[in-house]
Amino acid sequence: MQIATYVIILLAVLFLLSCFVTVQQGTIAVTTIFGKYNRSLPPGLNFKIPVIEKVFKRISIQNRSVELEFQAITIDQANVYFKAMLLYSVWNQQEETIKNVAFKFMDERSFMQALVRTIEGSIRGFVATKRQSEVLGLRRDITEHVKEQIDQTLEEWGYHLQDLQMNDITFDEAIMRSMAQVVASNNLKAAAENEGQALLITKTKAAEADGNAIKIAAEAERQAAQLRGMGVALFREEVAKGMSLAAKEMQQANLDTSVILFSMWTEAIKNFAENGKGNVIFLDGSSEGMDKTMQQMMAMNKLMDPGMPKK
C-alpha cells in the first residue's frame, strides 16, 4: 500500500514538473500540439500543457557568424579566391518570424547550406561582371551588392544579414607576381619622379641663390665705385681748395705762384721714385720738358682758380 502511494506521489511530481519548461536567455522555444505550431516561449520559466504540448525547437536570437572560403571568376577569366566572415541573426522576435525560422528548413544544416550558397552565388555573379584589376578595390561594393540581393530572401527565411567582411582576396600565383611587379615598377617610377622634382627644386634654388649673390655683389661693387668716386672727387676738391689758398697767399706776398706747381712736380717725381715698386715710368726730365709741363700745370691752375680772369 505504501509503495503504491509513493508511486502515485512520484507520478504527480513528474506530471507537475512536465507542466513547466525553462528557456535560456538568448533563445526562444517553439512548441507544437500534435505536430502543429502552437506558440513561442520567451526566456525564463514557462507553463505548458503537459503531455500534449511539446517543445519543437529552441531558436537562438543571438548573433551568429560563419567563415566562407570560395572561388569566383572575373570577366577576363582570372580566378579570385575569397575568404569572408558572415555575421547574421534572427530578423526579430515577432511570431511570424519565429515560425519561419523554426519551420522553413528541415534542420540547421540545410539552412546553413542554403545561406552560404546564396551568398557565394551573389558574389560570383557580381565578380563575373568585373575585371581582375578592379576586384581589389571593390570590397565595399561587393558587400553592398550582396546585402541588396539577398536581404529580401533572408527576411523570408526569418534572418537578417548584419555584416559581410572580405578578409582576404587573392589570385593565382602568376597574377600575384605580375601585380607585385606592376606595383614595384610604379613605386620606382614615382620615386624617380620625386627624385627628379627634388633635383629640379635644388638646382632652381641654387640658381636663385647664385643670382641673388651676383645681384648683391654687383650692388656692393656699384656702391663701392660710387664711394670711391666720391672720395676722389672730395680729394680733388680739397687739393683745388689748398692750391687756390696757397696761390692767393703767394700773390699777396708778391711771389710767383708757379713755385707751387714746381713743388708739386718735384714732389710727384719723388713719390714715383719711392713707391714705384719696380715699375718703369718715363718722364721728360729736360728743361724743355719741364717748361712744357709747367705751362700745362699753370693753365690747369688758372682753370681751377675761380678768382682768376678767363680769356
Results as ranks from 00 to 15, higher is better:
residue 58 R to G: 04
residue 60 S to E: 12
residue 61 I to S: 06
residue 62 Q to V: 09
residue 62 Q to M: 13
residue 62 Q to W: 09
residue 62 Q to Y: 11
residue 63 N to C: 07
residue 65 S to Q: 15
residue 65 S to W: 10
residue 65 S to C: 11
residue 67 E to M: 10
residue 68 L to F: 14
residue 69 E to D: 14
residue 72 A to I: 05
residue 72 A to W: 04
residue 72 A to V: 06
residue 73 I to K: 10
residue 76 D to Q: 11
residue 76 D to Y: 10
residue 77 Q to E: 12
residue 79 N to Y: 12
residue 81 Y to D: 04
residue 81 Y to L: 13
residue 82 F to K: 02
residue 82 F to G: 00
residue 84 A to N: 12
residue 84 A to M: 14
residue 87 L to M: 09
residue 90 V to S: 05
residue 91 W to L: 14
residue 92 N to R: 07
residue 93 Q to R: 14
residue 94 Q to D: 14
residue 95 E to F: 04
residue 97 T to C: 08
residue 97 T to Y: 05
residue 98 I to F: 04
residue 99 K to G: 00
residue 99 K to P: 00
residue 100 N to D: 04
residue 100 N to V: 00
residue 102 A to E: 02
residue 103 F to H: 07
residue 103 F to Q: 06
residue 104 K to H: 13
residue 104 K to P: 00
residue 105 F to R: 06
residue 105 F to E: 01
residue 107 D to W: 00
residue 107 D to R: 00
residue 107 D to P: 01
residue 107 D to M: 01
residue 108 E to L: 04
residue 108 E to C: 01
residue 109 R to D: 06
residue 111 F to W: 11
residue 112 M to G: 01
residue 113 Q to D: 13
residue 113 Q to F: 09
residue 113 Q to S: 11
residue 114 A to D: 14
residue 117 R to A: 14
residue 118 T to H: 08
residue 118 T to R: 15
residue 119 I to P: 03
residue 119 I to C: 04
residue 119 I to R: 07
residue 121 G to E: 15
residue 121 G to W: 04
residue 121 G to K: 15
residue 121 G to D: 15
residue 123 I to Q: 10
residue 125 G to W: 03
residue 125 G to N: 15
residue 126 F to L: 12
residue 127 V to W: 08
residue 129 T to W: 01
residue 130 K to Q: 15
residue 130 K to H: 11
residue 133 S to L: 10
residue 134 E to M: 10
residue 135 V to Y: 01
residue 136 L to F: 05
residue 137 G to I: 03
residue 137 G to V: 05
residue 137 G to L: 03
residue 138 L to K: 12
residue 140 R to I: 11
residue 140 R to H: 10
residue 141 D to Q: 15
residue 141 D to Y: 01
residue 143 T to Y: 03
residue 143 T to V: 12
residue 146 V to A: 06
residue 146 V to C: 03
residue 148 E to K: 13
residue 148 E to F: 08
residue 149 Q to V: 12
residue 150 I to K: 08
residue 151 D to L: 06
residue 151 D to S: 15
residue 152 Q to R: 13
residue 153 T to E: 12
residue 154 L to C: 02
residue 154 L to D: 02
residue 154 L to N: 05
residue 154 L to P: 04
residue 154 L to Q: 05
residue 156 E to C: 02
residue 157 W to N: 05
residue 164 L to V: 03
residue 165 Q to G: 00
residue 166 M to T: 04
residue 168 D to S: 13
residue 170 T to C: 00
residue 171 F to Q: 04
residue 174 A to F: 04
residue 174 A to K: 12
residue 175 I to F: 05
residue 175 I to N: 00
residue 175 I to K: 03
residue 176 M to C: 04
residue 176 M to G: 06
residue 178 S to E: 15
residue 179 M to P: 01
residue 179 M to E: 09
residue 180 A to I: 02
residue 181 Q to M: 12
residue 181 Q to E: 15
residue 182 V to W: 04
residue 182 V to K: 13
residue 182 V to P: 00
residue 182 V to F: 07
residue 183 V to D: 11
residue 185 S to W: 07
residue 185 S to V: 10
residue 186 N to T: 07
residue 189 K to V: 06
